[in-house]
Every structure is written in structure tokens, then in C-alpha cells.
Simulated scan of single mutants.
Amino acid sequence: MEHALYRLLDEQRIRYQRFEHPPVYTCEEAARLIPELPGAECKNLFLCDAKGRSHFLVAVPAEAGVDIKTLGDMLGVKGLRFASPERLKKYLGLEPGSVTLLAAVNDGNQHVTIVVDEALWAADAILCHPLVNTATLSVPVADLARLLAHCGHAPRILAVPRRS
């Protein structure tokens, strides 16, 4: 899966810098184990509505706490909540700890809506796992936008509400 991602990045001329590191499962672990890299650190949340009909991959700055209820109101969905690991595997082909914007490549049927915080999208580059949590890619935002569009996932850019 990871090798197919690199082939696609190369075919689409998506620029990236790759950094290997020990497995990380949280932003706190990443901050402790990964040296400072060129790009904005992000936190990725895989969410669904109360009935499990709508799914969202939400990317925000790493230090941001998200007000999920208000975000659900903004997105027009009721009961927005964290989706299960089974749903993560089914819709994005990922294991917990590997959630990444690059997982859009695994959602050919566009079951998942990509939501990116406007502050994160304003960065020059975003740090993303390449579908595994043992490496990080620094991808210029313009290239990331092209990749997401190629995968049929033009992101919704929002001021994602913060937890107070």
C-alpha cells in the first residue's frame, strides 16, 4: 500500500521529503520522537455521523483541540463522533495511528469528506504519514491540493472550531 502511494506521488509529480522514524501513535509521541521537520504538524481525526452514513477526515494543527459538536453543526451532521477502527480500515484502509490526508488515495468511491483547517491549509507544507506511522512526508500544500483533486477529494477548508 505504501509503495503504491509513492508510485502515485511520483506519477502525479507530487513533491515530498521523506523522514523515517519509530512508530508514533499520537501528536505527543511525534513531538517527542521526530525531529523538527519542514512543514506544519497536524492532527488527523476520522469522524462519522451518529448513524455512520457520513464520514469525515479532519486535519487541524497538531496543538488544536476540536469542538466536535460545533464542527458537526458546521458540516450539517448530527451526532458527529470518532469513527471506529473498523470504519477506518473499511473506508481508508488504515490502522489507528496512521491517519493522514494522504489516505484519500484509498477512498476511490469518495465515501469520506476531507476537511482541513484554514490555518493548516495556509502553511507552505503539511506533514503527513505515508499511510504508515513509521515515516512522515513533508508535502507542499499546492501539491497536496493537486493530489487530493486527482483522487476526487477537493477538501473543504474551514475555520475548524476549537475546544475552549
Rank of each mutant, 00 (worst) to 15 (best):
L94C: 06
R163D: 02
L131E: 01
L9R: 13
D107P: 00
S54C: 02
Q12G: 06
I14N: 09
V66E: 08
R18P: 00
R163P: 00
G97S: 13
V139L: 12
C42Y: 04
P161S: 06
M74A: 14
A50N: 12
R32F: 07
G93S: 06
C48P: 00
R53V: 00
A59P: 07
A50L: 09
P61W: 05
P96W: 08
N106E: 11
V116L: 06
P155E: 04
H21V: 00
R32S: 13
N109Y: 12
A83R: 02
A31T: 06
R87V: 11
K51P: 00
L88P: 03
G39N: 04
A122Q: 10
R162E: 12
Q17I: 01
L94T: 06
D107I: 00
L127A: 01
T70Y: 10
G65P: 11
V58W: 01
H21Q: 05
A159R: 14
I34A: 09
A4R: 15
L33P: 00
V115T: 00
T70H: 14
P155M: 03
D10S: 10
R163G: 00
A135S: 15
A31W: 07
C42V: 10
N106H: 13
L57S: 02
N133K: 09
K43M: 03
L88G: 02
A154Y: 13
E41R: 15
G108K: 11
H150Q: 09
F46V: 01
N133C: 09
D107R: 01
L8W: 09
V139C: 11
M1Q: 12
V105C: 14
M1T: 10
F56N: 03
K89Q: 10
F46A: 01
A59Y: 08
Y91V: 03
Q17V: 05
T134E: 15
H3D: 15
P22R: 07
I14K: 13
P35H: 08
K89A: 14
V160K: 04
V105R: 14
E118P: 01
S84A: 11
K69W: 07
L8V: 14
P22Q: 10
Q12W: 14
L45Y: 11
A154W: 13
C42K: 13
G79H: 04
H111A: 14
T100E: 09
V139D: 10
F82N: 06
L102R: 04
L158W: 11
L137N: 12
S54V: 00
L80S: 06
L80G: 06
I114H: 02
D117V: 12
V141Q: 04
A122G: 02
V66L: 12
I34M: 09
P96L: 10
A119H: 15
L33C: 08
A122N: 08
C27Y: 02
R53L: 03
A149H: 04
A40P: 09
V77D: 05
L102F: 01
T136Q: 03
G52M: 01
V141D: 04
E11H: 08
P140G: 02
L8C: 11
A104V: 01
E63F: 13
E20C: 05
V116A: 08
Y25T: 07
H129M: 05
V60L: 01
C48D: 04
V105I: 15
L9H: 14
R7Y: 03
Y25P: 00
E28L: 14
K90E: 15
H3V: 05
V139A: 11
I157D: 03
E36Q: 14
T136E: 03
P38I: 02
